[in-house]
């Protein structure tokens, strides 16, 4: 069965249509494999070759990849959710009820979005600590570390702005508690809070602002920084795999 399927597969890949889409062709040579990466708009941010150690689980735990994956899930589930959602109080809450009780698979969509959001925050934090512990922030990767810190704060803001959107008690008071912290900032705190909420309290204006931030501004900024982040991985010499044991030993004092 297997060889037959492989035959069909190769036949498909030889067709003119396939070739017009995927220019890499059918071969399994390194050239062809390089072309797969080079000629894809999505993959060309990556290098054609990677260190063998860099793709092992031990080095990265794939935390960066998985963070990106959760971001993708969030975009994919977020767009259909936008179709059912009105950023106005209290209609937003009624929309949650409709998702829960009427919309086909609505509850699943919302669950997946919410759990993925929590997973993303968790994975991004884990990614940061993992990067730190294997020393991957050192020269020449300093700036990419900074980009990572920016992405971490963007992740937190994305999650935080999304938290308000269901307009239930949990959302309202979580945002109230969080935004009250801003007031403690000297001089500008109150003003920044007013700017963020569009008022002195969490209200319909805040809901609209958070909606726009959550669905347009922050994702757009995040995508931009993600692109920089990926690009810099490659430009800074690929995934940092740490020094060889022998090299480390030289630094051990009094040994």
């Amino acid at each position: 069965m297997m060889p037959a399927m492989e035959g069909y597969w190769n036949q498909l890949r030889r067709t003119r249509v396939w070739k017009s889409v995927f220019r890499s062709g059918t071969g399994t040579s390194n050239l062809h494999r390089s072309q797969v990466v080079q000629q894809s708009i999505f993959l060309h941010l990556l290098a054609v070759k990677v260190r063998k150690r860099a793709i092992s689980f031990r080095v990265t735990w794939y935390l960066g990849t998985l963070s990106t994956a959760t971001f993708a899930i969030l975009v994919i589930t977020g767009i259909p959710l936008m179709l059912y959602y009105h950023p106005s109080a209290p209609q937003a809450y009624a929309d949650m009820k409709d998702l829960q009780f009427v919309v086909t698979a609505g509850v699943f969509l919302r669950n997946l979005h919410r759990w993925s959001a929590h997973a993303m925050v968790l994975l991004v934090f884990a990614h940061m600590f993992k990067v730190f512990y294997r020393g991957a922030y050192r020269t020449p990767r300093e700036f990419n570390w900074v980009v990572g810190v920016i992405l971490l704060t963007l992740t937190l803001f994305l999650s935080y702005t999304g938290y308000l959107l269901p307009w239930d008690q949990l959302a309202f008071w979580a945002i109230t508690v969080g935004s009250n912290l801003l007031s403690a900032v000297p001089l500008v705190g109150e003003k920044v809070r007013f700017l963020m909420l569009g008022g002195h309290t969490v209200n319909a204006n805040a809901l609209l602002r958070f909606y726009v931030l959550h669905c347009v501004i922050l994702p757009a900024v995040a995508v931009m920084f993600l692109a920089i982040h990926f690009w810099r991985i490659r430009k800074d010499g690929g995934i940092h795999t740490g020094e060889l044991k022998a090299a480390v030993k030289e630094d051990i004092p009094h040994a």
């Binding site: 009820k97 829960q100 009780f101 008690q169």
Partner: peptide, 16 residues
């Protein structure tokens, strides 16, 4: 009224 499950519609335990 919006609920379509017995528990939530009648007892509304997780709604206002």
């Amino acid at each position: 009224g919006a609920a379509t499950s017995v528990e939530e519609a009648h007892h509304s335990s997780r709604a206002s």
